[in-house]
Design a protein around this nucleic acid. Structure first.
Lengths: 249, 249
DNA sequence: GAAATTCCTGCATAAAAACGCAGAAACCGG
DNA sequence: CCGGTTTCTGCGTTTTTATGCAGGAATTTC
């Protein structure tokens, strides 16, 4: 079989099945693995396939694209995410809600981190999927198109089965008196379950949302362990929360 | 044999078989390899063949295997999706696997359709989410980064709880003898569960994948009800499947 | 962490191509 | 018919290309 022929065959297979294994190719075509690898390399150089360990993938079915710009207060959120990430260690089970702050967190996870992330938020899961080393567990149930998150009794039941090391809550409103509050009943149910299922609860919030209130209560301050904002922990705005027993970062 | 004659013969062979080997040509015509090579060179210069190491290929060869459009065989897939959509009625529960064909289906769903769609494939769910009227149920579990689908025992258990009206399987390989086959063990487990949980199983496959085989078996032809390809139902390729008792569309 | 794959690099070998050359054949104008 | 010219073909030689193999590095997986 001619080299060009072989490459055409490979390309054909990749486009047909979205992936190929070098091992199966080399038995199919009956050449050495080296040859296959060289072919894959060439095709990859031409951009016709994407080479991965053990085989190759179709370039079309690979990246699910999600826009990143235009996020409100992105710099603050990055700062928050950075602090939050420092709390995650290898091997941990991490439960996260949805929201743009959590998406930033997902994007900034260091590549070598190995941990398990659990979430029901589609945009967040998309980010997790791009990460090379983490395990991703998706909470399933009915999807709320508004919040792009799975909601419902089954999702809650699933969360309750988990015992996570740490839980990051993207927060819509936090206040000394009313604790954490939100405006979507179903999302609140989920967050409650997440709080119950975690050893440590970390609340991520930009300073703007501190000392604001929303209609539905998630939990009181006593149920959360830590508050992260883009501000310094010794900022005046934070002192009331320190006094309330929260660790502020 | 004259030079022109020889070249005409070569050209004929190339067009007939899509390829020639210089070595076989030189024994057939009984001239030296150099002569053959010079002939091939001339023909290649005229653009009548494509010269490669060891022989030559038909110029049409390239176009067959190197599609220039973005997603592979998108038109065929749209045609398939169109046919599949005609099977979906208001109020139905629809179970779908992953794959680019299913994504096309998701994109083309009519806006006024009201039905419930269930899937564990992230890219497919993303498309469903854009639809104004359908309910979307996400199957949760561990995410396979390769196939961008939730896999695992919990996902399978969840699927088994469902009783769907119809199930659409994006198919990697289908064959009269071996039925539906695939190359990812976990995906196969899911598909098996989906087949069990559906009243009607519809297999979507582009014609290229018909009569091909992959290593792992999903089910036999007797387990599926319908086969949809981009071809007409009375196409010769389909007749064997009609005879096997499938409804072909 | 250890075992098993897979990958990469350099090397050896064989096949094919390129090159130059020379003899043979065809062509051609007288 | 003939010398000169052009074209074609085959033969060595050198270069390039294709492929497989052996090792050690890197990676995945358990």
């Amino acid at each position: 079989m001619l080299k060009k022929e072989r490459q055409a065959y490979i390309l054909h297979q990749v486009n047909l099945h979205n992936k190929v294994l070098s091992s199966s190719l080399c038995t199919e075509i009956n050449v050495s693995e080296d040859t296959i690898r060289r072919d894959l390399q060439e095709l990859a150089d031409e951009g016709k396939i994407i080479k991965v360990h053990g085989g190759a993938l179709s370039p079309s079915f690979n990246h699910v694209y999600f826009p990143s710009n235009g996020v409100y207060s992105q710099n603050q959120k990055k700062k928050i995410a950075q602090k939050a990430i420092s709390l995650i260690g290898n091997g941990m089970f991490v439960l996260t809600s949805g929201g743009t702050t959590i998406i930033e967190l997902a994007r900034m996870l260091p590549h070598q981190l190995k941990a398990t992330f659990i979430s029901g938020s589609i945009p967040v899961i998309l980010e997790y999927m791009h990460h090379p080393n983490i395990e991703v567990i998706l909470i399933g149930d009915k999807i709320s198109k508004n919040s792009k998150i799975t909601v419902g009794s089954q999702a809650i039941a699933k969360i309750k089965e988990v015992k996570a090391d740490i839980c990051f809550l993207g927060t819509n409103a936090i206040d000394i008196e009313h604790g954490i509050t939100d405006n979507d009943w179903e999302v609140v149910q989920l967050k409650k379950a997440m709080i119950e299922s975690s050893k440590k609860v970390v609340c991520l919030s930009i300073a703007e949302k501190v000392n604001t209130v929303q209609p539905i209560r998630v939990c009181g301050l006593e149920d959360i362990d830590m508050l992260i904002t883009e501000l310094d922990p010794d900022n005046a705005l934070m002192q009331a929360y320190v006094k309330a027993g929260l660790e502020v970062m």
